[in-house]
Amino acid sequence: MKARFIGAAIFGITGVSILLSLGFWQMRRLEWKLALIDQIEARIHNDPVAVPADPNEERDRYLPVTAEGNFTGEAAFVLSSLREVGPGLRVIAVLETPEGRRLLVDRGFVPEARRDDVPLAVDDVTIEGNLDWPGDVDSYTPAPDLGRNLWFARDPGPMAEALDAESVLLVARQDSAAASPLLTMPISGVALKNDHLEYAITWFLLASVWAVMTIALLWRIRRTTV
């Protein structure tokens, strides 16, 4: 019985320790995410500059920029959805500058039923926004349906290759050519998924339950030995 009591105690303490460590790890992740959000918010609203000649992800992510030129009519459509609106598409358009640069611009969201109502070829436009290299693609993301010009994630590299543009995305904050039904979707730190607190609470609650169950088990074992 003594060996059983000690084994149950070790098992219980180990389980509680693991669950608590997961909870504290999520709390550290929460601190990191909040710091990242503050960093993004502090940068995205700075005065915009010209798009660097050689944009670098590590140096220039979220850099506020401005660009002028013509929307060529070339675009990629990314399957998306918006709460309270429903399914739709992100419009990734090619902006050709007077210097001949071809930039990818995330112009925002359009409801799926109104895809054809967005004018794609527009002259003399001015865009203000932020550079980004979205990490939307994962191992479960389907390959794009090039026949329908439908993508399932924003992926600047392959999109740039398909549209013969630079491999960087300018996410519009202000688009002089934007009009209904197109809804501009600027970068915002608060839009980052931040559910670490909920996960931490879950792990801590599980640790509490595990501790209570362990105490109850030890009590039962001890009673049987009396």
Rank of each mutant, 00 (worst) to 15 (best):
N46P: 02
A179T: 12
E31Q: 12
V212F: 14
R90D: 15
A93S: 15
A160W: 06
S188E: 15
F204L: 07
V122R: 10
V49C: 01
R102E: 09
A216F: 14
V51G: 10
G7H: 03
Y199M: 01
A35K: 03
G15Y: 03
S188Q: 14
Y199H: 09
D132P: 03
M159K: 05
L34A: 11
E161L: 11
I221K: 01
A143I: 00
I44R: 10
E128T: 15
G73N: 08
D138T: 10
W219K: 13
N194P: 03
R222M: 08
D195P: 03
F11D: 05
L89N: 10
P134Y: 01
V16T: 12
A93L: 12
L206E: 05
R90V: 11
D124K: 14
G157V: 11
D136W: 06
V137R: 15
A143Q: 13
A179L: 13
R222V: 07
D195H: 12
R61Q: 15
R114C: 02
G108V: 07
L19Q: 02
G12R: 01
R173T: 14
E31I: 06
P134I: 03
I127K: 04
T97N: 06
A177G: 10
I13H: 00
R114T: 04
G86S: 10
M1Y: 06
M1L: 07
M159Q: 12
L103F: 04
